[in-house]
């Protein structure tokens, strides 16, 4: 009898051990299918609009041809798969409002993203460089630079990306500090927006909208809705924004991929824990024998 019990426990353990030692390549392949299948054949899961994205949309809708938007692309290529759709959607919306746009970045790769994604987009519209928009390129110095920018933009960025001094650019004629900016839209996957909150919003009450990678959304909730008037949280928020402006793009296309892969992740977490708890329980039983 005791031998039979031991055999049964051993059999259970071998199944659990196998479950615990699943080759990671098996998991990787399932992930590949979880990504590829919904991308090729979208499931069309409905997306509802969250409060934070709606407030961001409402704030941008208030802009008009006299508004000045500080469009800060503070992400690198790493953030592009998640926020790429959002950058395009928000930029499209801002262009539609006819607001004047100052393109700028505090991230090393930001200039390249601006040149690669945003400039070709705005060049297709009937907007003139220097009058309707300007590309100030990269500025270094993070929050210290933002402190200076808040009171004197020219002291940090004396010329645009084409080496033209700001005084020669018509759009910059009456702009030299945070109070001249109507709205800051910051794309962020780290802590870049914190500098704008502390140095621009707290001191000069500048309105800020944050488009954040999902991983940093929780840490920015304390700022919403007082210091950050609108948030577009991660890939989901970008998909919501594409829906709001009526231009389905990359974010909506990949939202089903996110759904399926997240469900698989939850399944893995639960399965891993079942294996962990069961093997602990059976080991406990074995000790009692």
């Amino acid at each position: 009898m005791k031998d039979l019990l031991k055999e049964e426990v051993g059999h259970k353990m071998s199944i659990l051990e196998k479950l615990g030692n699943v080759d990671r390549r098996v998991i990787y392949w399932i992930v590949v299918f979880c990504i590829a299948i919904p991308y090729i054949r979208p499931l069309g899961i409905p997306i509802s609009i969250s409060n934070v994205t709606q407030t961001a949309y409402n704030e941008i809708s208030k802009l008009n041809q006299n508004s000045i938007v500080w469009f800060a692309v503070d992400i690198g290529v790493g953030g592009l798969p998640e926020l790429g759709g959002g950058i395009v959607a928000v930029f499209d919306h801002v262009i539609k409002t006819n607001a004047k746009i100052i393109l700028v970045t505090g991230a090393l790769e930001g200039t390249l993203l601006i040149n690669d994604i945003l400039i070709p987009k705005i060049e297709k519209e009937t907007r003139t460089y220097g009058i309707d928009y300007v590309n100030l390129g990269y500025f270094s110095g993070e929050e210290v630079a933002k402190t200076r920018l808040a009171t004197d933009i020219r002291s940090v960025i004396p010329n645009d990306i084409y080496e033209t001094t700001l005084d020669e650019i018509p759009i910059m004629a009456n702009i030299n500090q945070a109070t001249d900016i109507d709205l800051v839209i910051c794309f962020d996957s780290g802590i870049s927006v914190d500098g704008y909150v502390r140095q621009w919003q707290s001191r000069f009450n500048t309105k800020i909208i944050g488009v954040f990678a999902a991983v940093i959304v929780p840490q920015h909730y304390p700022f919403f809705p007082t210091q950050i008037v609108g948030m577009i949280p991660g890939q989901r928020g970008c998909a919501e924004y594409e829906l709001l402006i009526g231009k389905p793009g990359d974010a909506i296309k990949t939202s089903d991929v996110m759904s399926v892969s997240h469900i698989f992740m939850i399944f893995l977490i639960i399965l891993g824990n079942i294996q962990f708890i069961a093997s602990k329980y059976i080991k406990g039983d074995k000790r009692h024998d």
Partner: peptide, 13 residues
């Protein structure tokens, strides 16, 4: 898990 399900459309579905 709950926040993950909140973040993806399938959670609401």
């Amino acid at each position: 898990i709950l926040v993950m399900l909140k973040n993806v459309p399938i959670g609401e579905a």
